[in-house]
Write a protein that binds this DNA or RNA. Structure first.
Lengths: 334, 334
DNA sequence: CGCCGGGTTTGAATCGTTTCATAATACGAG
DNA sequence: CTCGTATTATGAAACGATTCAAACCCGGCG
């Protein structure tokens, strides 16, 4: 159905090699011939078969990217920045969503390997350092995104989640709250574990403070709402004074159930802080305090690190680590 | 670097065809041989080269999807639903972001054509019906998403934007507002034009009502904030009584500047309604009225229609059209 | 007039997989 | 013991683009 280079050659009355040259090295072809070939390409509606090209080349121009949750605005922002940066370098990015599911993650890694992508940007769900090692052995560059690489082996772009967790809890403590709660997703998620660890550290520095840990089914608005519901069903005096959510989506959900459904006041009855500082954080019912991560820079840097690896396979792995930043808004006012 | 089927065959002491059979038709191979081959695959870390496979097959198992703006939660939801549905059918989806830029859109279409994708799901930015026609001629199925197909030629999944625009304006009029404003992106965007048209129709039915049209640079929170800023700088009596934004992101931005920055009250001073009913709409400072579109169904249906086309190239194009729904919240209370 | 050198063009070889007609083998029945 | 059949294995051909050594053409120079 689709025309091949051979048919173009036949129509233009030249050899296949010439057509290929018109496509890839126009300067090597005499102007008259070039036009004749371009005419043939036009009339046949020829579109280059990328599979054949790649097969010959042994490698594609594509970068694979696996994100934990593309419907989380934070990851969407990271992905967008990466996309822009890649376009600048003449690469295309194709994306996959693991949804925090190690199986789906593995499927995408395989898919990308089969496609012989140049490299992979990945926010790991499970423990895939073994898999990444295998990738590198096979000559596929990889950069961890939003997760620190092991000791010197993988390049990575991360944000210091422990510091972020510390900042969040510290802020709550600074504003006079003592009975804190942490709402996270599965403790298997590294970001959740690290943020919790930071929070625990802050709390441990105040002998009179406590931190209760709650687990949400998911890191979504809906799951946040469910946890919030659970909380308000307790007797009032067992309610925490402040809640730290592992991301803004959870915080928004908790906020909804506290406030809209149960008539509690934020921050008077309960203070609330999220994580990521997504665009919506400042527009919520009560503007949400949060810990900001530099999404754009993360995406851009990830691509840059990957390009470094591509340019020189023996370039040392680099770990870039950003520091998050507290953004205090009304939801934690004292 | 990467092992090929040939090396696997050599190591296992069988012919290449046998290895291929182990990979694709394990039942045709004797158990003993199968295990020997699988062992070789294991030790060599063999990964199938998809380019070669596709070249031979002439087609891939991939579906290409082009969205207008993946950082808009509405599109993210559509994409996610499509992804799930495709996975169910054993296809993979790769995504591209046009960002409403016809050039980027064209680049992605080309990329997908070169990859010989099974089909394309596309929310068109520019006028690409010509391009889609070319795709079909070449045997690539296409489904328009969130835009109605022309008369009988393309399959499409859309939502009646004119009806939605009408509903929004009608609702504002019903609650007693008369001087309305419409905030949209570029009028070149079909959704914007249609929603405006619907609103105009509603307004024209009320002789004492008026509709002022404002254009935002973009359909983002930031652009919304800019337009809101412009509005509040006017003298108070020239302020509209109600604002209809072409999507929720714009509405959130407008809300921010009205309320947080300028101390106006919503809905008392100005009523506000958005479009899409994204998850955050109910969590904004003042819960946002909106027009809901069934994102999940749109994504799912798009894939279904594509599968129909794939199953039978001569299946008639189908147009599925959903009707949006008004969700009234506090921001338009009278 | 023959040869040289440049710019052009040619077309066979190659990439790795799948397919399929054919060959090899094993096993039972006669 | 032989033939027929069923099961399994073989390996050449094909997919379509790129590459590259070789062929070709043509004007200029000795």
């Amino acid at each position: 159905m689709a025309a091949s280079i051979k048919e173009v050659a036949a129509l233009a009355g030249v050899a296949v090699g010439t057509v290929s040259n018109v496509l890839n090295h126009p300067d090597r072809v005499a102007p008259a011939t070039r036009e004749r070939v371009q005419g043939a390409v036009e009339t046949l509606g020829f579109v280059r078969n990328d599979a054949a090209r790649q097969l010959r080349a042994g490698q594609s121009r594509t970068i694979g990217m696996i994100v934990l949750d593309s419907s989380n605005p934070f990851f969407a922002a990271v992905a967008r920045a990466a996309e822009n940066e890649a376009t600048l370098h003449g690469s295309d990015i194709i994306m996959g969503n693991s949804g925090n599911d190690p199986d789906r993650e593995a499927r995408y890694v395989t898919l990308f390997e089969e496609q012989r992508v140049q490299g992979v940007l990945i926010s790991p769900a499970g423990d895939i350092s073994a898999r990444i090692g295998a990738l590198r052995d096979r000559g596929v560059a990889a950069v961890l995104v939003d997760r620190e690489g092991g000791p010197g082996d993988h390049s990575s772009v991360s944000v210091d989640d422990t510091a972020g967790g510390f900042m969040a809890a510290e802020h709550l403590l600074d504003t006079g709250r003592r009975r804190l709660a942490f709402v996270g997703g599965s403790p298997g998620i590294r970001q959740v574990a690290d943020r919790l660890e930071g929070a625990l550290k802050a709390v441990s520095e105040h002998p009179d403070a406590s931190l209760e840990v709650l687990e949400a089914a998911d890191m979504t608005v809906l799951a946040g709402r469910a946890v919030g519901q659970e909380l308000v069903e307790r007797s009032r005096d067992r309610l925490p004074e402040a809640i730290f959510c592992a991301n803004d989506l959870l915080a928004v959900g908790v906020l909804q159930s506290l406030l809209l459904i149960n008539g509690l006041r934020v921050p008077e009855d309960v203070a609330l802080i999220g994580y990521d500082d997504i665009d919506f954080a400042q527009s919520t019912v009560v503007p949400l305090s949060s810990i900001r991560q530099p999404a754009e820079e993360i995406g851009r840097t990830a691509v840059t690190l990957l390009q470094e690896q591509l340019a020189d396979a023996h370039a040392p792995a680099r770990q870039v680590r950003f520091t998050p930043e507290l953004v205090a808004r009304q939801s934690t006012r004292s």
